[in-house]
Design a protein around this nucleic acid. Sequence first.
DNA 1: CGACCGCCGGACAACGTTGTCAAGGGCCTG
DNA 2: CAGGCCCTTGACAACGTTGTCCGGCGGTCG
Lengths: 322, 322
Amino acid sequence: MKDVASAAGVALKTVSRVVNGEPGVHPGTAERVREAIELLGYSRNESASVLRSGRTATVGLVIEDVADPFYAVLSRAVEDVTTGYGCMLLSGSSSEDPVRERELVGAFCARRVGGLIVVPAGADHSYLRPELEAGTPAVFVDRPPGPGLDVDTVLTDNAGGAGLAVRHLLGHGHTRIAFLGDEPSIFTAARRLHGFRAALGHLFDERLVAMRTPTPAGVRADVDRMLALDAPPTALFTGNGRLTVTALRALAGRLPALVGFDDFELADLLVPGVTVVAQDPAQMGRVAAELLFRRMHGDTGPSEHPLLPVRLIPRGSGELPA
Amino acid sequence: MKDVASAAGVALKTVSRVVNGEPGVHPGTAERVREAIELLGYSRNESASVLRSGRTATVGLVIEDVADPFYAVLSRAVEDVTTGYGCMLLSGSSSEDPVRERELVGAFCARRVGGLIVVPAGADHSYLRPELEAGTPAVFVDRPPGPGLDVDTVLTDNAGGAGLAVRHLLGHGHTRIAFLGDEPSIFTAARRLHGFRAALGHLFDERLVAMRTPTPAGVRADVDRMLALDAPPTALFTGNGRLTVTALRALAGRLPALVGFDDFELADLLVPGVTVVAQDPAQMGRVAAELLFRRMHGDTGPSEHPLLPVRLIPRGSGELPA
DNA sequence: CGACCGCCGGACAACGTTGTCAAGGGCCTG
DNA sequence: CAGGCCCTTGACAACGTTGTCCGGCGGTCG
C-alpha cells in the first residue's frame, strides 16, 4: 500500500480511502490510485485491516461432516447468505467429536469471526461463554447447545416428523412398526425416538427398537434380528438418511413398508419409491444464517428458537399394506 | 495478552513464548502464564500474529459447489489433510462463474493463505501470476488452468474413462451408442467427448451426441429426440453424475443400456444397478492437498501432473444386450 | 574467589492498515 | 472583498503480536 501511495503520488491514507470506497476522494485522484493498484497487483492485507478495525467480515461454521449431503446442502445455503452480506465463510467438520468441535470454534474465534453457526457434537458449551459475552453471536443448528447457554437455535420438528411417519404407517394398517435410529446420545435421534414412541402409544415394543451408529454390519444384524422375531415388524421407520440407505441395503429385497427420516437423492427412482419425512437443509442453513446476521447487526432481542416443519413425501414404500 | 502478562506478573514476550511453545521459559513461569490464560479466557489474535510473522497456517479451496456430492467429498478429503498439517481450510463455491472464482481467490489471497487449491471455472488465470511469483503455491484440480500458467494439476483420466465405457458397451454388442455430456466448454466434458469419439471410431454419429448444462427439461428433450430417430441408440453413455441421474429420470423406464461417468450413492440399489466409470474424489482431494503441502514446505521441483485412474464398476445397466 | 558462560526474562520496534485530527485550497455568501 | 465553510488530502498513532537484542542472575570452571 505504501508502494501504491508513492506510485500514485498520494498519501497512504488516500489509498486506504480508495480501497475502502470511502467518500471524499477526488474522482481523478481515485482513478490514479486505482491505476497504481492495478499496475502493482496490490491486494489489501486483510490481517492488518482486521487488526486495526476489529471487523472481519467472516463467519464460522462448524458441522459434522461436509461430505454428508445433508450438511453439504446446509453449508452451501449458509455460504450463499454469507456471500450476500459480503462476508467470507470459514467452515470445518467436527466428525461428531466434541474435542474437534471445540478446536474449530477456538480457531474461528482466534481469527475473530463475526459470528458462529454450530452443529454441536459435544454436550457442554460453557467454553463459548467468554466469546458470547465478548459479543460474538452464535446460532446452534440441528441440535441445541448444552445446558445453561441461552443462544438462538434452529431445530427441526423431529418428534413431530417421527409422529407423522408413524401415523402414516398406522393409517396403512401396520401395528408392528420398528425403529432404527442413531446413537440415542445424539439429540435428533433421541427426539425422533420420543416422537415415535408417543405416536405408537401402547403399540410400542422395545424389541422393535435399535439405536446405534449406522454401520452396514450393525444395521444388518438389527434387521436380521427383528425379522426373525415371532411377530416380526411389517413396517420400518428409519431415523435418518444414512440409516435409510444402509437399511435398504441390509434388507436386500425383504422389504417391509418403510418410511425414512430425511429425503435423499434418487429416493424417487428406487422401486418402490422411498417414502420419507423430508427436512429442508437449505432452509435450515438460510434461517440460521439470516438469524446470525441479524444478531451481528445488533439485534439483541431475546433468543429465538424457530422449529422448522417437515413434510411427508409418499412414494410407495410407506404405502405398502400390512 | 497484555492483561495475561500483568496477571501472571511477567513480560509480554514471555506470554508470547508460552503461547507459541518456544523454548527458554522456566516451567514454573510457563505454568503461571497458562493459569492466567485460562483464568482470563484469553485467545491469541490470529490477525496480529499473521501480520507480524507473515505465516498463516491456512489453505484456500475454490470448488464449483459444496452441495455437489463430488465436491463435498473432495472438500472433506482436503480438509482432513489440511487439519493433519495443523492448518485451517478456507473454502468457497464458484458456481461455475469465473468472476466469482476470481473474487474467491482474491479474498483468500487477501487473507494471506499459504496455498490454493482451485477447481477453475474460468479459462484465464493470468490474474494468479503475481500470487504465484509472491510464493503462494497453487494446485489445479479436476481441470487445468488457462494457457500460459505452469502450475501443478491433479486430473482424472477423462478420455481413458470414456473409452473404457464405450469399449464395455461395444463388448456387449452395442453399435449405436449415444453420449449425453455437459457444456463442451467444460474441460472434463470435452475430454470425455474426445475419448468417446476416439473409442467409437467410424461408429461415431453426431446425431447421438448432446452436450448442455443438465436441466431436467433439456435432458428429456435430448433423450426424446434420440429415441425417436430411425436408428435409435441401444446404449447411452452419460458424461457425469448429475447427467446420469437426470437421464435416468428422463428415460422413465425406456431404459437402453447405460454407463455413467462418476459413481453415485444408490447406483447399486436401482434396478438394474447402474454401471459406472468411477472416479475417486477423495483421492483427488488428498493427492492435491499433499502436493500443495509439499510445495508449501519448499519443494520447487518442476510442476507435476498426476493423472488419476478410473475404474469401471459393472452393476447391470451396462451389461444389457443390444 | 573471580570471571565467564548459559539461561531466562524484558524492552522495543515493526508488521500494514485505519481512525482521528488538522491543514490547505477553492468557492460561496454577506 | 473578506470571512467562513466544505471538499480534499495528509500526518500520526494505535491495533496485538513477534523478532531482535540486551541485561541480569546463577552456576561452573579456572
